[in-house]
Amino acid sequence: MANLKELSVRQDPLTGGHRACAGCGFPQIVRMVLLSSKDPVVVISATGCLEVTTTIFPFSAWNVPFLHNAFENSAATASGVEAAYNAFVRKNKIKGKINFVAFGGDGGTYDIGFQSLSGAMERGHDLLYVCYNNEAYMNTGVQRSGATPRGASTTTEPAGKVSSGKTRPRKDLTKIMAAHNLPYVAQAAGGYYMDLIKKAEKAFATPGPKFINVLQPCRLGWGYKPELTMEISRLAVQTCVWPLYEVENGIWKVTMNVREKKPIAEFLKLQDRFRHLFKPGNEQLLADLQKEVDKNWEELLKKGAP
């Protein structure tokens, strides 16, 4: 695996001068993933924060080929790009390996782009799909998505006098993608960059469809001080709210062991979206959330102990 020094001499896929918020969590994820490719990459992105902030005409922050089509179709679009590449290789019009990477936020992945993702993965296109998962529709102002965790307050399922935020747990998309029997599926977090880089390298070395779900703290939607982006990402892992694991050809493996699990409150209390959970009356909900995390972690350990 390449170390940071080795990666730092590769060309940065992103320039500065993009319009992501100060302290945003996704540019690093994009850089970590793309820098892990030894071969040239071509990027396809869904509509969302990433696309909007990096391509405001006439300013593109992309140093690598980049295509944006629409919100729900980055996987389908990428499948077309990959098919064109295959046709050109067959007709001897192109030489050399290219890695195709599709990005989507959780809205573009869990919700509106889910069918497109599922179809492209089932068809077996040789591409890596990366979800930068900030657990709500941040680009349009923090609306709830299928990735929003139970108890989080969003603008379309807010906490209020008679509501404690989202009532249902998020869907487990990483598991759903594993059920597609892909050669490589992983869950990662930007705060554990070497883990993410290793996973991206593995994905690029694996032919066929790959999926990585990367948790991305959003200082605006989650409500925390901008310098804490990486720390909160790590706390999600250390509390087992967001365990790091991979599923390689059906073999499950936790890639970051958590020997002393921190209470979820340590992760939640730093974020405004969970602030209401610490008000009197929500003790049971907090306990339930802890129970849910514990249960999921135990189940994951049974599937693939570190």
């Binding site: 940071l4 020094k5 080795e6 990666l7 730092s8 001499v9 940065d12 992103l14 320039t15 500065g16 001068g17 993009h18 992501a20 100060a22 302290g23 945003c24 969590g25 996704f26 540019p27 690093q28 850089r31 970590m32 930007g190 960059y193 982006t229 990486m230």
Partner: peptide, 20 residues
């Protein structure tokens, strides 16, 4: 200490790196 952590965690590609 030239650990390069600042470089990898910067969201704005604003840590200038020359020859590693």
């Amino acid at each position: 200490i030239q650990c390069m952590i600042c470089w990898i965690v910067c969201p704005d590609s604003s840590v200038k790196v020359v020859d590693g």
